[in-house]
């Protein structure tokens, strides 16, 4: 599997580290209910098909990328730079 990094071009998947589903966004830790925090930390859609997910290009440009990939075929539809930092941002 190769990921076409917008900064570095097509690179082997070994250069990247996987984090997971890109859709959960961290609630404000001071304001959030327990249920919202539980939902963010543990619950996942886990779809069979189109999946937007976060990859880190550790052996390349050190950018976080949002990859749209089919979990049934591993075919990659789109790779974009991730807009927001992953942690510490309010929803």
């Amino acid at each position: 599997m190769r990921i076409t990094c917008p900064h570095c071009g097509a690179r082997d998947v070994q250069e990247f580290t996987y984090l997971g589903d890109a859709s959960p966004s961290r609630p404000d830790g001071l304001e959030a209910t327990e249920a919202a925090m539980f939902d963010y930390v543990y619950q996942r859609e886990n779809p069979a098909g189109r999946h937007r997910e976060l990859w880190y290009h550790g052996a390349g440009c050190h950018a976080w990328l949002t990859v749209t990939r089919d979990t049934r075929t591993h075919a990659i539809e789109a790779v974009e730079p991730t807009k927001r930092p992953k942690a510490g941002t309010a929803a």
Binding site: G20, D21, Y42, Q43, R44, E45, N46, P47, A48, T71
Partner: peptide, 17 residues
Amino acid sequence: NSSRLAAMAGMRLPIET
């Protein structure tokens, strides 16, 4: 495929495949 079946019951699970 637990998440797919659970989704049919409107549930999400703390699971990734």
